[in-house]
Amino acid sequence: MANKVYFHKPTNSKSYLLEAALWVLGVAVLALMEPTGKHAFSFCPFSWVLEQGCPGCGLGHAIAFLARGELAASWQSHPLGVPALVIICYRVAVLVRLYFGLIWWERA
């Protein structure tokens, strides 16, 4: 049986749009930051405590390098920068789809 499109407006649909907007804003801030510059503050509590930081350190720089088209520098900052950006973009697409009430599933 083929996939069909069903329209359904969830009751908390505004939260979907808010989360999508926050993801887009976060990626935009990361894309606009200067990845080669020295940063004075980090929101990561692991970087406050641990000298080497956490396993996620460098993801923001990797996304900033990706926004500039510097794939090699992005890979050096963090190898998971590209997958992280793809996952974030997928999440935003799902949230927007949910907000507008488009849900795909197969009916048995």
Rank of each mutant, 00 (worst) to 15 (best):
A72I: 12
N12S: 11
K9N: 07
G26W: 08
P10I: 01
A28T: 15
E34Y: 12
S13H: 05
V96D: 01
V27A: 05
R97G: 07
L30W: 09
E51Y: 10
V96L: 12
H8A: 05
G26L: 09
H78C: 04
L50G: 07
A40S: 12
R107Y: 15
F41D: 01
A62S: 08
F7H: 14
F46T: 14
L80A: 02
N12Y: 03
S13Y: 06
P83S: 00
W48C: 13
L32T: 07
F65C: 05
M33T: 13
L30E: 05
Y6N: 04
G37D: 00
A93I: 15
A84R: 11
V92I: 15
E34F: 04
R91C: 04
W75I: 01
G58S: 05
L85W: 03
F43V: 15
C44N: 14
G58L: 03
W23L: 11
E106D: 15
C57R: 09
H78V: 01
I87N: 09
G81I: 00
I63S: 06
F41T: 09
V27D: 01
A20Q: 13
G101D: 00
V24D: 03
L18F: 03
G53S: 07
L66S: 01
L85V: 13
V29K: 14
S74Q: 04
W48L: 08
L80E: 04
S42F: 07
T36D: 13
N3R: 09
S42P: 00
H8Q: 05
F65D: 01
G56Q: 06
L66W: 04
P45L: 10
W104P: 02
C54G: 09
V49L: 13
E34I: 03
A84E: 02
A72V: 13
L32M: 04
I103Q: 12
V29Y: 05
P10T: 03
Q76K: 14
L95W: 04
M1R: 07
L32G: 12
E34K: 14
Y90F: 15
A72F: 06
K4N: 07
Q52L: 06
L30D: 08
G56P: 10
L59I: 08
W48N: 11
L71R: 11
V96F: 11
M1Y: 09
E19Q: 10
G53I: 05
A31Q: 03
G56K: 11
C57I: 06
L32Y: 08
E19N: 08
E19C: 09
C89K: 11
V92A: 12
A72T: 15
G69H: 12
N3V: 14
